[in-house]
């Protein structure tokens, strides 16, 4: 049985049952359809104490054929994600554990979502993909940050 099939079973178990660690984070994590485990979608809750609090955030995950030797490809999709380490147009995420050099085959999709949650809690404006938000963060203007994020979430472009 391939690794992703096993992982799917494990994820189902964790999400259904005693997955306290993920209860506050994951709304949904499942393959787009049951017959193709190489294409997944996820919905996570914006963490409290961040401007994302109260919003649901969508992600798409592509599993490469040599997974878990190669890392999964994760993007914020279909909705645009205002975050200093996310490309606003493409949804691409600047997160090192998703790169070839830093990925570990012992990690799974739950780790990946946890790492993304952490990125939402602790943005890193020093390596930005969204310069506007990075600048606001560097100036320490929390109100402007929250305002801008909420503006985008409520339909601004």
């Amino acid at each position: 049985m391939s690794r992703i099939v096993k992982e799917y079973k494990k994820i189902k178990k964790v999400l259904e049952g005693h997955g306290e660690a993920f209860e506050n984070l994951i709304v949904q994590l499942a393959p787009v359809n049951e017959y193709d485990l190489l294409s997944w979608k996820a919905t996570i809750r914006g963490p409290s104490d961040t401007p994302y609090n109260g919003f649901s955030i969508g992600l798409t995950i592509k599993i490469p054929s040599d997974y878990p030797i190669s890392p999964p490809m994760v993007k914020f999709e279909p909705y645009k994600m205002p975050h200093c380490n996310v490309n606003f147009q493409t949804g691409e995420i600047c997160l090192d554990i998703l790169t070839r050099q830093h990925w570990s085959p012992a990690w799974d999709l739950l780790h990946v979502l946890k790492a993304i949650e952490q990125l939402l809690q602790e943005p890193v404006p020093e390596s930005p993909l969204n310069v506007d938000i990075a600048n606001i963060l560097k100036e320490g203007d929390r109100t402007a940050y929250t305002g801008l994020v909420r503006y985008y979430f409520c339909g601004g472009t």
């Binding site: 997160l95 090192d96 554990i97 790169t99 050099q101 790492a115 952490q118 990125l119 602790e122 390596s127």
Partner: peptide, 27 residues
């Protein structure tokens, strides 16, 4: 790059600069 692993050192071929986040033990 945004890093979650303390033991990782920056390597060549980076698209963005490596920055190390705090909660390193999380993963």
């Amino acid at each position: 790059m945004t890093s979650l692993i303390r033991s990782d050192r920056p390597k060549e071929l980076r698209l963005c600069r490596n920055t190390q986040a705090k909660k390193a033990d999380l993963v």
